[in-house]
Amino acid sequence: MSTVENQVPVFEGIPSSDDLARIADLLVQAGLETIELSDGKGARCFLRVDASASASHVPTSGVPSAPAEAMQTDLAVKAPYFGVLALTELAEIGTLVRQGDVVAQMRIGTLQVPVTVPIEGTVVEVVGQDGVLTGYGAVVVRIEPTV
């Protein structure tokens, strides 16, 4: 299976408009909606392709005509308590989550503390690992808030 990431240019600062367009094309071809690029120094770039718009419009020029949104600020959804992390079915990249949705439970024996989403958005990264002892304040998922 050909993966998108090995065709995506190396992330070193904000990609050029040509690169953005190319990445957007790759996403559409792969049937993906979002991608996160990071450089390991804390800089991140999110791209989201509007599925309805891109379905019929595959850009061929260097101009990113697909509505790819660069440098979106994402939001970390953190564990409100410690425990063994149990992800729910909503903790999946691309899932649209609403305020109050539960993306995971922190379990200690029979005690369960829900990890809820503070604001509507799309899951762009699942950071927490299912079944792993996880501390207070650990990032469980990242969401890109709905604009």
Binding site: F82, G83, V84, I108, G109, L111, L133, G135, Y136
Partner: peptide, 24 residues
Amino acid sequence: LCIGPAAASKSYLDMEGLLLAAKV
């Protein structure tokens, strides 16, 4: 295991939290 925020009342002084941490 991180058990709470900086405030001692919610970490080092949180009896219930410490007992749960021991359990888990």
